[in-house]
Amino acid sequence: MPLQFVGTIESLGSEVAGLSIGDRVMSPFTASCGACFYCSKGLTCRCSHPEAQLFGWIQEPAPGEPGSSRPRGLHGGQAQYVRVPLASSTLVKVPDDVSDEEALLLGDILSTAFFCAERGGVAEGDTVAVVGLGPVGLLAVLAARHLGAARVFAVDGVPGRRAQAAKFGAEPLAPEDAAAAAAAATGGRGADVVLEAVGAGGALALAFDLVRPAGVVSSVGVHTAAGWPFTPVDAYNKNATLRFGRCPARAYMERVLPIVQSKKWPFADIITHRMSLREGVRAYDMFERRKEGVIKVVLDPWR
């Protein structure tokens, strides 16, 4: 960890094209080749190149696993220098009118928020509910508003995060109040689209309860449970559309970049703490425990 980072190019491999030493660049959370079947369809998170792996995630091979005995994955950006494979197709130059912090968000959570909202099909006039107001969920509030949602309900158990969502133009709700509020606002139907950004069974169950019949639940939370909090027949009876998956951040970065450059939306306002890399353990503890009003922490390896 972390999955996303911003930096300046210090050296280049012999096969790198389109980049120069001194360029300020941002990286998505996966490397990608830009040319394979999946990249050509904009699904850069599923690039089939052997070096197209996740930053900040190292997986040891299972005992007896065929093929290479080398670990898979790439070291993350918690260092002063990071090696980026497939750099020509992975890195994106940062324009002068985009700050390092805005660029940092584009590499993962801002792109993921727009991916979540677009996969949900958020359209002009929709009623949208966002379940989970961590960094991705808060940015999903802004993404839904950008796509034309008329009302956005923002659901989280942490009062400070609900307060930030209210600043972004959402109607904040505690989880226990969300279903009744969404029903009351829609003549009993429920939300047209629910964006789930937690990755926990309870959050997914709430998202399913909030969505109207024939609505869409778009989930970008990383779910690790062995089962579902609802059954296939529940989904059938509700005519629900369920969409899950990892964001193709590299494909989204350039799409969302003009929105960042417009300065219409205060995306970087979710950054509550700026700390040195030496304070990384404390930063993770703060985030895990939701202490000191933390939402998003930026680590600076040069401080």
Score class of each variant (00 low, 15 high):
296 K>A: 08
281 V>D: 15
194 V>Y: 02
114 F>P: 00
223 H>V: 08
29 F>D: 11
74 L>V: 14
194 V>F: 01
129 A>H: 05
151 R>W: 03
104 L>I: 06
118 E>H: 07
290 R>H: 11
126 D>G: 06
278 R>A: 15
134 G>K: 01
204 L>H: 09
26 M>R: 13
67 G>L: 02
303 R>D: 15
257 L>E: 11
190 G>P: 01
157 G>T: 10
221 G>H: 09
80 Q>P: 10
128 V>R: 04
13 G>N: 05
186 T>H: 06
235 A>Q: 10
7 G>H: 09
277 L>S: 12
33 C>Q: 05
230 F>E: 13
96 D>C: 11
66 P>R: 09
272 T>C: 09
95 P>S: 10
253 M>V: 10
186 T>P: 08
216 V>K: 02
263 K>Y: 12
257 L>Q: 14
254 E>L: 13
295 I>S: 02
175 P>F: 02
295 I>L: 12
94 V>I: 15
95 P>K: 10
224 T>D: 15
273 H>F: 03
277 L>F: 11
24 R>D: 14
34 G>I: 04
12 L>P: 07
169 G>V: 00
270 I>A: 04
203 A>Q: 04
213 P>Q: 13
180 A>I: 00
67 G>E: 05
257 L>H: 08
111 S>P: 10
252 Y>G: 09
127 T>G: 09
105 L>E: 07
138 L>R: 07
15 E>D: 15
303 R>H: 12
36 C>K: 03
46 R>D: 09
123 A>H: 04
303 R>I: 12
23 D>Y: 02
89 S>Y: 00
187 G>V: 10
79 A>S: 14
77 G>N: 15
4 Q>W: 02
161 R>S: 06
263 K>M: 07
